[in-house]
Amino acid sequence: MAKAYLPPKQTGIGQFVDSIFLIVLVYGCLMLPLLFNFGGGESAAEAPAEKTEITWQSLQQNEVMQAQWEKLGYSPEEAAELINARFDYSIEPISLGVTALVILGYFLFVLKYSEKEYRDVIAERFGRTQK
């Protein structure tokens, strides 16, 4: 049987610092997209800067839709904003590639490193020689 690994005892201050570290890290990463002023998920409204008067017909709403909008308290002008808002689903190959690589790389790293640590755990728990 291999000699068991004896972990050092952590001081109270060390425990405190470790807890704080993670919290700071979380906040840092929550702020990250804001720092770079990325606006993920924003809908690109194709502003209907039209001169024509907005009516339910011009918004292509049938009678039932129109009735429901009115029941919700919307005028055609107010509803137009929602109806004309559209997401932008354009795909940039580079950023998609980077994202895919980061996720894949992360999992490969975690799995590989875990495997190494896991062998130690099994060796200590069940003994190294037995197979």
Partner: peptide, 14 residues
């Protein structure tokens, strides 16, 4: 990625 690409990356960074 389509809606929240930058958030996805920053979370991976975490």
């Amino acid at each position: 990625y389509l809606g929240y690409g930058p958030q996805l990356l920053s979370i991976m960074v975490f």
